[in-house]
Design a binder for these strands. Structure first.
Lengths: 243, 243
DNA sequence: ACAAGTGTACTTGTATACAAGTATTATAAA
DNA sequence: TTTATAATACTTGTATACAAGTACACTTGT
């Protein structure tokens, strides 16, 4: 696939991905960033031409995005739904729901290995902050929560996560890129929230866990404004870590 | 698509479905019923030959089933995961999770229209019981819960439901077919549980709701045994409503 | 001017063809 | 007998071809 200039999705995350996955990731970023606006109707043929690939991977990508609720497959074309403030809140509703569920399981388990793993990820996050690497930070942030969720070995909760993850990832990626440039001081707080989370797991403190989760989620308030700024940054050609 | 003899999925539910959807539904039923055993490796070519269709709809179906966690797409072939007792419990964990969430929203809403709708569905269920129509009963049962979930207008909770629904539907379908034949007396209790549920929504009684939900879910204990019996019934050629 | 009908340029769904890669099996050598 | 290698058959991923259906614009008749 010969991608046009200016990819939004980090290329190195696609090392062994299929063309269909690449298209899905890139399209997802363009939709969530607002580069492709809500209401737009996408045609398989046009997309295939744009990405210079055949319709097969495009179809695959569209089905993926449809399952993620950011497009709607209709008779004639796929209409873009995207993310409004409402949808972002809904995503965090679901995250709160499943992470609370996971915590209830965790308090009945031995969490030493998990805490160790999370500490490692936290260190990585700190390094990413230090070197102002938004993409790496986003990756570790998502990995942090995924690690917690995976630890209870619940395949259907994991399924929910897997459905949410790509959209989350894109959203966080765009949001973090803006904040590294405009609100760098936020990261001390974000790191701190995650440390609280680890502490809650270590001490199995339900209240602390809820507190850190809420802090974490409050931190994404104004998420849509971040996306909007991300869109403006793109227009100015700033903030893309890959070319 | 020229289906081979003995379809498990009700044909009339597929009136305007694509070939890919048909294959997905039928394959899902065969997997959940145990007709295709856990660990089996499915090949696109073999499936295409079996169903007498091309690989395109087969690929589509496999991706669908993979998102539902009942198969796992690997390098060479799709391996069947299926449903064990553990997975069924996990599905009900998730249902409990989201239906509880929905209820919390419902108690803050006007539920008159919803209660009316649910009453209608309940009447339909009673008729289905009376005429021993397992497929129709299953349909209304699934619709009952879907109606409740849709009522709060939460797109990401609905997304979870949509991912769960096909597997639920298949499971309920198979389970009900067995019970209509072997445990017909169960249905008085099932109907009663649903009436309790409606009552809980009408009176916004959180405890009653949880009680009826648990009753409802306790009712599916031994789910895997039902599937096993369903499998035995199939071997004897009984219990298929369509030919 | 306006309504009805027709043609055309799109749309998706399915089938088929081709390419690249992997496991397995058979063969040959030690 | 065992091991290494090569041929083969089967796998998925992608591209392309074709069919059926839909929307829209244009033409034609009134």
């Amino acid at each position: 696939m010969h991608m046009p200039n200016g990819l939004l999705y980090p290329e190195k995350w696609l090392s062994k991905a299929s063309t269909g996955d690449r298209v899905a990731c890139e399209l997802r970023m363009r939709i969530i960033s607002g580069m492709i606006k809500r209401g737009t109707v996408l045609s398989e043929n046009k997309l295939a031409a744009d990405f210079a690939v055949s319709r097969s991977p495009i179809r695959e990508a569209l089905r993926t995005l449809s399952a993620e609720n950011i497009i709607r497959l209709e008779r004639m074309g796929a209409v873009v739904v995207g993310l409004t403030e409402k949808e972002i809140e809904e995503i965090y509703d679901v995250r709160l729901l499943i992470e609370s569920f996971v915590f209830e399981r965790l308090v009945k388990m031995d969490t030493d290995a998990l805490v160790m793993e999370l500490s490692k990820i936290l260190e990585m996050m700190k390094v990413a902050v230090k070197y102002r690497d938004a993409d790496e930070f986003s990756y570790q942030d998502v990995l942090f929560h995924e690690t917690i969720i995976r630890s209870i070995g619940h395949s259907y909760v994991l399924m929910i996560w897997n459905n949410l993850k790509p959209v989350m990832e894109s959203f966080i990626l765009l949001s973090m890129r803006v904040r590294f440039q405009e609100k760098y001081e936020d990261f001390a707080r974000i790191i701190n929230n995650h440390e609280l989370y680890v502490e809650a797991i270590k001490t199995k403190d339900r209240n602390l866990m809820l507190k850190s989760l809420h802090l974490n989620f409050d931190d994404v308030q104004g998420g849509v404004e971040d996306l909007w700024r991300s869109q403006q940054m793109l227009a100015k050609g700033v903030g893309q870590q890959n070319e």
